[in-house]
Design a protein around this nucleic acid. Structure first.
Length: 461
DNA sequence: GAAATAATAT
DNA sequence: AATATTATTT
């Protein structure tokens, strides 16, 4: 939460309501640096299960960054040392090394009222996750541990390291630990590597088989029901079947029949049908601009109270996250039969424009991710007067943001720089001064002041 | 009791 | 959001 409100009470309420931090405007470079370092650190220090959704993208990103760096050999020696340091971070969590003083800490409303300083002394969120030792049942349903989360920074780095050298090892592990099928995204940063059933199968053979379900033999440990990947092809058949049957007859079992896809179950179809119907229901009623991934206008409500964290464009500097195209766009030569090609299906049908999986890799809702469009124009020439950043009038039209919420922000480059630093050097010692949010103490203080009614979370202030 | 559908869970 | 799983209805 950023605001220029000074009222301590308000600040506390914000924290109580779930704000992770309350930063007073104007935001300074140091504040940014500080909070981002915390973000990155937290992303790695919290156990996998506790890792909030919003932190995962950060973690993934950092991991991929490291990966990349290692691959490029950019930080072979010099930085490897540091990496080792990183692995120690968890051992001796807090080392108030002098260096830290370099970063004057911003202030959380960490209750500094009436001379009383409420600090929750403990060593904050370093709930180091000690290797989930779920003695995976040899055959049972050992919840495939998501490769991505649940690793400490050290672990991730270790994994990343594996990439550069014994690549085979890596591959192999992946193969039999996840059973070669549909591994959750891996630390590796190459989304494109993810093969798609059809593409991977060297040729267009065995067309009637659900991806992955074709485990030729009933391989004993046929563990894990594989998720059905509703590829374009599959969906096409589905639609065709539904179409052929008509809205009335389009029930799972019959659809399944018509599809004639080996391995596909009725339930699979049912599930898909459910979604299909919902989309139709939502799209058809409104004929205006039925493009599916329609932008909902809800977000741009100019609600003045909606806190907004404008943050650095991930894709901007350090490493381009990569081009973004609709899933079955460019990268897959084999799947050029795009959805856009109308007429491919029954032309009379209200073009099934439900283009799924629109833009991978964009987590708009993620913590610290860009919540608003990156200004295209050159409104970054404002560094002149300190932290200037007055291009509001230039950009808000598009973003629909309340103007006052984007003022008082450090210049774009500054933000970029700070984030880059935090991300590229996760081993930097934690800047002191920014205490983890201690909701409890805030709540206590609030009630002490007689404020006991705090609206439930997820509600606008 | 099975399939379809609705509601949740992952 | 996409699928799976579970609950409820038909």
């Amino acid at each position: 939460m950023t605001s220029n409100i000074h009222c301590i009470s308000t600040m506390m309420k914000c924290i109580a309501l779930g704000a992770v931090e309350f930063l007073r405007k104007p935001l300074s470079e140091d504040k940014l640096r500080n909070i981002w370092q915390h973000v990155v650190h937290k992303a790695f220090s919290v156990g996998g299960d506790d890792l909030s959704e919003s932190l995962k993208p950060v973690k993934d990103y950092v991991a991929s960054m490291l990966h990349q760096q290692l691959e490029n050999g950019e930080c072979k020696h010099e930085d490897l040392d540091k990496i080792e340091d990183a692995s120690m971070i968890h051992e001796k969590d807090h080392e108030p090394s002098a260096v830290n003083n370099k970063y004057p800490a911003p202030s959380t409303p960490q209750l500094q009222q009436g001379g009383r300083l409420i600090v929750n002394g403990d060593c904050q969120e370093h709930t180091n996750c000690s290797m989930e030792k779920e003695s995976g049942e040899p055959d049972g349903e050992s919840k495939s541990v998501e490769t991505t989360s649940g690793h400490t920074i050290a672990e991730v780095i270790a994994l990343v390291g594996q990439h550069q050298k014994p690549r085979e090892t890596m591959v192999k592990e992946e193969a039999d630990s996840i059973d070669g099928a549909k591994g959750e995204r891996t630390v590796d940063s190459h989304p494109q590597d993810r093969v798609h059933s059809e593409d991977s199968c060297a040729g267009a053979d065995k067309p009637n088989t659900v991806s992955g379900l074709h485990s030729s033999r009933p391989n004993k440990a046929n563990r894990k029901k594989l998720k059905v990947d509703w590829t374009t092809e599959l969906h096409k058949k589905f639609v065709q079947a539904v179409d052929q049957l008509g809205i009335d007859q389009a029930i799972p079992s019959r659809i399944l029949e018509l599809m004639k896809v080996e391995g596909l179950t009725r339930q699979n179809v049912a599930s898909h049908l459910q979604k299909y119907r919902m989309h139709k229901r939502h799209i058809l009623p409104k004929e205006d601009d039925p493009r599916w991934p329609r932008r909902d206008q809800t977000q741009r409500s100019c609600h003045p109270h909606k806190p907004i964290m404008a943050f650095p464009p991930y894709h901007s500097n350090p490493v381009p996250v990569g081009p973004v195209y609709p899933m079955w766009g460019a990268p897959h030569p084999a799947s050029i039969q795009t959805w856009g090609s109308h007429g491919y299906y029954h032309p009379w049908q209200p073009t099934e424009s439900w283009q799924w999986k629109p833009y991978p890799g964009v987590h708009a809702d993620a913590w610290g991710c860009p919540v608003m469009p990156i200004p295209q124009g050159n409104c970054s020439t404002f560094t002149q007067n300190g932290y200037g950043f007055h291009c509001s009038s230039t950009m808000d039209n598009r973003s629909g943001m309340p103007q006052n919420s984007i003022q008082h922000q450090p210049a774009e480059e500054v933000i970029d720089e700070v984030v880059k630093e935090a991300i590229n050097k996760p081993w930097l010692p934690l800047p002191l001064g920014l205490k983890p949010p201690s909701t409890d103490s805030v709540l206590a203080e609030l009630s002490r002041q007689g404020i006991s009614t705090i609206p439930p979370r997820n509600q606008r202030l």
